[in-house]
Amino acid sequence: MKGKTVKICITSTGTSLDSNVDPRFGRCPYFIIYDTDTDTFEAINNASRQAMGGAGIQAGQLIASKNVSAVITGNFGPNAFRVLQTAGIKTYSRVSGTVKDAIEKYRNSQLTETSAPDVTSHYGVGRSN
């Protein structure tokens, strides 16, 4: 049993570590949940992609329930950002390239934490990145 969470979440265009980081949080095709301790991962299909509205809110709650300590993506919309902040999950945005590279950067502390949503809309309606 480990005392602290070592899992991180990366938004991804595909199901492998060679996939690219998807720039969207709420409507990315997949989430890669990576365990930095055991170097294992699972790819989760993002069902929120089909949501009429509030995709980021739904996705945020899903990720919060996965007990991850950080989320890495391109952009956070304001709704998703609020959910993740409330859940105490660290947020890293403006990340591109492969999922593998993103994990490396995270390990080497090369990513800077995001302090505000990237998309300034205050609508969750219809879309939420």
Binding site: M52, G54, I57, Q61, A64, V83, T86, A87, H122, V125
Partner: peptide, 23 residues
Amino acid sequence: CAEFCHYNAIAVIGSEVIFYPEL
């Protein structure tokens, strides 16, 4: 409440409730 809402207008994280009126 969050589980029921078909419009994702409610998020519940622990004891906190976030409500999104636009949704």
